[in-house]
Each structure stands twice: as C-alpha cells, then as structure tokens.
C-alpha cells in the first residue's frame, strides 16, 4: 500500500481517537469536578490528628472523605477553600453531612501544632479533622496523589509561604479516589457533585 492510500485512514483514525479523548468519553456520571476513579490510588496514610494521636486511613473507613492539603498560616486559598467546603456541605441534608469527614492536612508541621490545627479547624464547623505528620509521612502521602509542597524563604518575622496543592480530593467510604475538585468550582457545583457521587455510591 502506498502512502497516499494509508494516509487518509491514519488521519481519520487519529482524528477519531483525539475526538474521543477530548470529549472525555468515559460514560460515567457527569461531574463538574474531575472524575479520578481508577486514575489515583486508594487513600492510605499514617498521620497525627489534632489531638496528637496517630491515625491511619482505616480510622475514617465507611465515611465519605474530602481531603485538602494546606497550612493554617495560609493567607488566602486554605481558609477560602475550607469556607467553600463548609458552604457546599450546608447544601446537603444533616444526615448525609454527618457521614462526611473533611480532612485538613497541614503540610507545615513545623508551625502547625495539634493545638493550632484544632483552633483552625474548629472555625470551619464539625466534621473537620486537622491532620499533619512528619516530613516523611507527608511526602509519602503527597507523592501518592502526585501533589507536592514547598517552603519559601522566611521574612524578618520568620513568616514564610508554603506552596501546596489547591485541589480537594474526594474519597469514597471504601477509600477509593473519586473526584478532584478545582479552585474554579463553585459551591453549588461542589454540592451537586457530592450529591451525584453519593447517589452513585448508594
């Protein structure tokens, strides 16, 4: 076969597969968030909670989990995201809300002591758990979800910025990775996504 005969077929095949890839033809339910089912591994960690107790992912088994990486000194994204989560959960009925854990994972263990974490999480309602860990534990968990964090240079007051993931990871009650929620997603969209996910899981 000469090139002139093969070429149109190859181009057609490339075009079709590109079209499929771009349209996200997965056949699953419609989310505003990215569906990461099967893309990312199940939730697994060894960390310390805001009471100073060692915890693992198994301690949150059977409940829907929203995981966010941040730090309490965060000037903008972290408090804003926590407020958005709180508002989004407010759109669910009380029973459902009780079965959801919000895990706020501090990647700044140097400054975020258990007390500090507790002060921070308590201002965002019940069901918010502050977690942190050693650098080794934090690195293991962040690498597992292909996210990272880093520290800026401290200023004269010793204050430093921390770069961290801005996404909310949603895990099913079985610990399976389900959704990845962007900063652009509105409160209503997040509520709708959580409802869709809960319906799908039932």
């Amino acid at each position: 076969m000469t090139l002139h005969k093969i070429l149109p077929r190859v181009l057609l095949a490339v075009g079709i597969s590109l079209g499929l890839a771009l349209s996200g033809c997965s056949g699953g339910p419609d989310y505003t968030a990215h569906d990461i089912t099967g893309v990312m591994p199940d939730l697994e960690f060894n960390l310390t909670n805001e009471k100073g107790e060692a915890v693992t992912a198994d301690d949150y088994d059977g409940r829907l989990k929203l995981l966010f990486f941040g730090y309490t000194n965060c000037p903008d994204i972290c408090p804003a995201t926590m407020a958005r989560i709180r508002a989004a959960l407010g759109g669910l009925d009380a029973d459902t809300r009780d079965d959801i854990d919000v895990l706020f994972l501090s990647v700044d263990p140097e400054r975020d002591t258990p007390e500090r974490l507790q002060r921070f999480t308590s201002s965002f309602g019940d069901g918010v758990v502050g977690l942190t860990g050693t650098q080794e534990q934090l690195k293991a968990l962040s690498k597992r979800y292909r996210v990272t964090y880093g520290y800026g240079e401290p200023n004269d007051n010793g204050f430093y910025l921390v770069s961290h993931s801005s996404a909310i990871f949603v895990f099913g009650p079985d610990g399976r990775a389900r959704l990845l929620v962007n900063q652009q997603e509105s409160v209503d969209e997040l509520t709708a996504d959580l409802k869709t996910l809960l319906n799908q899981l039932d």
Binding site: R146, G150, Y151, S163, S165, S166, N182, Q183
Partner: peptide, 12 residues
C-alpha cells in the same frame, strides 16, 4: 491549572 492543583515545588 494542574500545577496549582498539584502544588508547585517551591512558591513562585
């Protein structure tokens, strides 16, 4: 936006 989602290696 994936670099914001995943966090950057250092603040930039």
């Amino acid at each position: 936006d994936v670099y914001a989602v995943c966090g950057r290696a250092f603040p930039i």
